[in-house]
C-alpha cells in the first residue's frame, strides 16, 4: 500500500489560499522563479497541477522541459505557515477549463484576504489578472516545512518513506 505524501493537511494548506511561487532550473543549474496562479493536487496521487501564465514564464517552462525538476512554495499570509513541494516535472500542458476555474476561485479568495490588509480588491486584482494558460504537473517527491522559525526547512516527508 502506498501512502500519499500530500496528506489532507497539506491539501488543506494549498486550499487555504497561500501566496505561491515555483521554480525550475536549466541543465546548467540556473534557476528561474515565477508566480503561481493556482496549485491543487490531482485526485488520488501526489501530482500537483501548477498553473502559471505562459507569457511571463517563458524561461521557467523552457527549463521545465529541459531539466525536469521543480519546486513550489506556498505561505498562508495569516499564519506564515509555509511548505515547499519538490519533485519531478511529469508534464507541461495547456490549462483546462477546470484549471482556469481553479484560478478564478483562488483569485477571488485571495481578493477577500487582501481586503484585511487595506487593499481594495476591485482595484488590486486586475493588476495580477494574467491569462492562466499553462499547467506544470509536478510529481511531488519531497515536502519541507519552511514556516519561519528556528529549524525552518525541515523535511516533512519524502517519497521512499511514504512508499513503505
Amino acid at each position: 500500500m502506498t501512502t500519499r505524501l500530500i496528506t489532507p493537511e497539506l491539501e488543506a494548506h494549498l486550499e487555504g489560499l497561500p501566496g505561491m511561487y515555483a521554480t525550475t532550473a536549466s541543465p546548467d543549474r540556473v534557476p528561474e522563479v515565477t508566480r503561481v496562479l493556482s496549485a491543487r493536487a490531482e485526485p488520488g496521487n501526489d501530482v500537483l497541477r501548477v498553473v502559471v501564465a505562459g507569457d511571463s514564464s517563458t524561461r521557467f517552462l523552457e527549463c521545465a522541459r529541459a531539466h525536469p525538476r521543480a519546486a513550489l512554495v506556498g505561505v498562508v499570509v495569516s499564519t506564515y505557515r509555509t511548505y515547499q513541494f519538490k519533485g519531478r516535472v511529469v508534464g507541461v500542458e495547456d490549462a483546462t477549463p477546470e484549471d482556469v476555474a481553479a484560478v478564478d476561485a483562488y483569485t477571488a479568495g485571495f481578493g477577500e484576504l487582501v481586503k484585511h490588509v487595506g487593499i481594495d480588491p476591485v482595484r488590486y486584482l486586475p493588476t495580477i489578472a494574467v491569462p492562466p494558460d499553462v499547467v506544470l504537473r509536478l510529481g511531488v517527491d519531497a515536502i519541507f516545512d519552511q514556516t519561519p522559525r528556528v529549524g525552518a526547512g525541515a523535511l516533512v516527508s519524502r517519497a521512499e518513506e511514504a512508499a513503505r
Partner: peptide, 18 residues
C-alpha cells in the same frame, strides 16, 4: 510584500523560498 527567491544546488535540484 515578501520576496521570493530560487536557487539551484550542484546536483541540479532547484529550491524556492521566501
Amino acid at each position: 510584500i515578501p520576496t521570493c527567491m530560487s536557487t539551484c544546488d550542484l546536483e541540479g535540484e532547484p529550491n524556492v523560498t521566501y
